[in-house]
């Protein structure tokens, strides 16, 4: 039976939080964790979570046989990438370095240890760990009902630098407002975020709920 939402399991574990949060916002939807390319192909919506290290993540994705299914989903139907599920969409990550899926032009880079002070001279730490306000760079159905500058939960040391600026749907000022980085992108039926909506309390649940009802 066709899944309403397929959560792609490429063998890096811990998809439970994403599954829990999606089931919480859409208790009647058919939402499953799957490692079957056919499920991903058939599903109405696809979520690609990710954490851990990029070299392991891409190796696991390539070995899983799900690489092509993920790329196809990213180009064809409502797709939500989370954390490494965002980063993997670009050409290459500095972590490793690791070639990624190349769905979009751009790179993934590490926070520069030499630049980790804000305008007030306060030292900022890596990983970027905790709740930062997200500036909604442009309106998007997935931001519906979420106030601009609402805080979301982040836990990462690398961030994406897209080449195409019209992809950018969200920005966050870390380590400092002078150089905000891209924390959300959107194009056509794809949306992807660096933060963790499944761990971002009410605002995160709203974003997931928006995704599940998105008529992209």
């Amino acid at each position: 039976m066709t899944l309403d939402v397929a959560i792609v399991d490429y063998g890096m574990g811990n998809l439970r939080s994403v599954h829990n949060a999606l089931r919480f916002v859409a208790p009647d939807a058919r939402i499953e964790i799957t490692s079957d390319a056919q499920d991903v192909h058939d599903a109405r919506r696809v979520v690609v979570p990710g954490q851990a290290a990029m070299p392991d993540t891409m190796a696991a994705l390539n070995a899983s046989g799900l690489r092509e299914a993920v790329i196809a989903a990213a180009n064809s139907k409502p797709f939500l990438g989370i954390c490494l599920g965002l980063q993997m969409l670009f050409d290459v990550s500095e972590e490793g370095p690791t070639p990624c899926l190349g769905v979009y032009r751009g790179t993934v880079v590490r926070f520069d240890p030499a630049k980790m002070t804000d305008a007030q001279g306060q030292r900022q730490k890596v990983p970027h760990m905790g709740w930062s306000p997200v500036r909604q760079a442009r309106a998007h159905p997935l931001w519906a009902g979420i106030a601009d500058h609402t805080r979301f939960y982040f836990a990462h040391s690398y961030y994406p630098v897209p080449r195409e600026m019209d992809l950018v749907t969200g920005l966050v000022a870390y380590p400092d407002a002078r150089e905000p980085f891209t924390c959300a992108i959107g194009r056509a039926t794809l949306f992807a975020v660096q933060f963790h909506p499944e761990k971002s309390s009410t605002a995160g649940l709203r974003l997931l709920s928006n995704f599940v009802s998105w008529n992209a």
């Binding site: 905790g130 930062s132 306000p133 805080r151």
Partner: peptide, 8 residues
């Protein structure tokens, strides 16, 4: 608005 200090 910077990163929030957390209460755990």
């Amino acid at each position: 608005m910077p990163l929030a200090k957390r209460i755990i």
